[in-house]
Simulated assay, not measured.
Amino acid sequence: MPHIDYYFATLSPYTYLAGTRFEEVAAKHGATITYKPLDIMALFSRTGGTPPKDRHPNRVAYRAQELPRQAKKLGMPLNLKPAHWPTNAAPSSYAIIAAQNAGGGDLGALVHSVLRAVWAEEKDIAQDDVIKACLSGAGFDPSLADSGLLSGAETYARNLEEAVDKGAFGAPFYIVDGDQRFWGQDKIEEVDMVLSGTL
């Protein structure tokens, strides 16, 4: 059975644009997923990336065209300048980690609902009520937002170290069977092809 380590950030617009397509591909091939939310700004600084606010104007201008293009192509709403971005990604990441440990809901739906809250719904994912609504909507106990904060923080930090060690440098980042690396929501088709044995 194939396995995919999924490194992502709850603030990443490109992770938002992945929607639930990644989960659909994994399900098609019977692949298991370990969700690994991480601090994307720390990942950038560790692997040679540049935070959006520090990027060259050419890169900023390209991002301003590319994100709406991709959203339109995918039929997804997108606010290029969300009211609550950037915000503290740790609480939503801890909740996802707690939900993965607890089980019983739809983890892919939870991740997407958190990202949709940022990029389409003008909500602050650092707020407890927003996180609890996302948990509840995905079939998880909303009280998970208040539990396992220490272990969540430890896992969140460990995810960053693992990402660096395994060759990740952005989000979303998919590692299939510990070796094949894919960066970006536009690589989901290639993940599908590798799992199919055609690539």
Rank of each mutant, 00 (worst) to 15 (best):
R46C: 08
A89D: 12
Q70P: 02
P37D: 11
Q65D: 07
R46E: 12
G104L: 05
A90K: 15
G137V: 02
K132Y: 09
F44G: 06
K28W: 05
P77T: 00
E24Y: 07
N58M: 15
S92F: 03
R63L: 11
K132M: 04
Q65P: 01
T87M: 12
V111W: 03
R46L: 10
N101C: 08
E121N: 12
K123N: 14
S45E: 13
M76W: 02
L78W: 10
L110H: 02
S92V: 00
V114I: 13
P68E: 02
A64Y: 11
E24D: 15
D106K: 05
W85H: 15
A109S: 10
Q70V: 14
T32V: 06
A99E: 06
R46S: 14
R63M: 11
A95T: 05
D124F: 04
G137N: 08
D141Y: 06
T87P: 01
V130A: 10
V111S: 10
E66T: 00
E66D: 15
V25C: 10
D54M: 14
D146V: 10
A26C: 11
V111K: 13
I33T: 00
P68W: 01
T34A: 14
D106T: 06
K81E: 09
A120Y: 13
P37A: 09
L38I: 03
M41L: 15
P51Y: 03
R46N: 12
S93R: 00
I96N: 04
R116T: 13
A31V: 05
A90N: 09
D124A: 11
I40L: 14
V60L: 13
H112W: 14
I96Q: 03
R116Q: 12
Q70C: 10
A117V: 04
H56D: 11
K53W: 15
K132P: 07
K73H: 09
P77M: 02
D39A: 13
P82Y: 07
Y35P: 05
P86S: 01
G75Q: 08
L110Y: 11
G48A: 05
G104Q: 05
P51N: 13
P86F: 09
S113V: 09
K132Q: 15
E122N: 15
A26D: 07
P68Q: 05
I40E: 04
V114C: 14
M76Q: 09
G49S: 07
I97G: 00
E23V: 06
Q65A: 11
V111R: 15
G104Y: 03
L107H: 09
M76T: 07
D141Q: 11
L80C: 05
A26M: 04
K72G: 08
S93W: 15
A138C: 01
V25D: 10
T34M: 01
A98T: 05
S143G: 08
P37K: 02
P77D: 01
G48R: 11
D54T: 00
I96W: 12
I131N: 01
P91R: 06
I96D: 05
G75W: 00
R59P: 02
R59C: 04
A27N: 13
P77R: 00
S92G: 06
L74I: 04
S93M: 02
A89Y: 14
G75K: 06
D129W: 10
A109D: 12
K132F: 07
M76P: 03
A31R: 02
D54H: 08
E122I: 03
A133I: 03
L110T: 00
W85Q: 01
S143K: 13
A109P: 06
N101K: 14
K36A: 11
L74N: 04
T34E: 04
I131H: 03
